[in-house]
Design a binder for these strands. Structure first.
Lengths: 162, 162
DNA sequence: TCCAATTGGTTGAATGTTCAACTCTGCGCG
DNA sequence: CGCGCAGAGTTGAACATTCAACCAATTGGA
């Protein structure tokens, strides 16, 4: 592929990388299951509700949702369709752009979010935030922001690929 | 649910948590796509090959694979079935326990791993390891190990759930 | 002005994952 | 011994995600 030699990871880096992967699967699965069992929604659905709740009119364009979560447009379409079926969201035509579709949180969606937020935040704390020092989390935040920046920058047309 | 008040996350913690989720989806998707495009395997399949390659006889019990990756047994069954179909792994009856099944890496699997490792390590470096200081990664490793420990400890019979 | 490329979004099929039910073997103890 | 429970793994259906193909509206030059 490239001309340069592959620089392998040393044992420590391998361990850190593996800890990251395994810990992440465990963490995400746990939080997802907690939300499903307590409130019948997935973490992806929860995250969408959160983003909608942060706007003044509880409304977001499909593309904005996809972008902010780094999900594919297709995925957002499917997820929103499911949420529409269960009455958490409804679709509306966008004002300005006739191609556009707004996802609008319903009252039911708002209600559910109020309840689910307790469960979720408790989980995030118990399984993640409360497990290490603020400094360690700051470092983690640094790293993950760098990851996003690098990947988005490296790939200007990222939406097309995902 | 519990009697205690929910302690919400402050703005900084929210930001860090969101950076973690978004960065992780971006990172995992990218590494997965790189492996698929270059070598036709998923990251999960790659990880299985790595674990097999680390044993003296390139063999692991199904349950061990599931445990070390924190995947459900069912998921491992399906993944290994796919890999068996594409000739990277074969199944063998376990010596000692007649219930057991060994996954054995084939030569083809070994070959593929040799090639794929370059791609993958290059990706892990470019998109993750080389983006922050060793100290930041140490912190990250700390946190993620704590996460795993907590979740595994909290749930002694974790296998049953996942 | 008009057409080509881009953007926003959806669709349906292929692929992957989860979930619950099931089989088979092993273990402990009356 | 023999019964019942636990452990290992598989199965198939339901569910979620990806991928490629598609349509419709918009934009930006020649």
């Amino acid at each position: 592929m490239t001309g340069s030699e592959t620089r392998w990871l040393d044992a420590e880096q391998q361990g850190q990388w593996r800890a990251y992967i395994v810990g992440t699967t465990l963490l995400m699965d746990t939080l997802d299951r907690e939300l499903r069992q307590a409130h019948g929604i997935s973490m992806a659905e929860y995250e969408i509700l959160v983003r909608l709740s942060e706007t003044p009119d509880r409304t977001l364009r499909m593309a904005k949702i996809a972008e902010s979560m780094q999900h594919s447009r297709s995925r957002v379409t499917h997820t929103v369709t499911r949420m529409e079926k269960s009455g958490l969201i409804r679709r509306a035509a966008a004002e300005d752009d006739k191609r556009g579709v707004d996802a609008v949180m319903t009252d039911k969606g708002w209600q559910l979010l109020q309840e689910a937020a307790h469960t979720h935040v408790a989980g995030v704390r118990a399984h993640f935030v409360d497990l290490a020092s603020p400094d360690d989390f700051a470092a983690m935040g640094q790293v993950m922001n760098a990851v996003s920046d690098q990947l988005v920058a490296e790939n200007p047309t990222f939406e097309d690929i995902r």
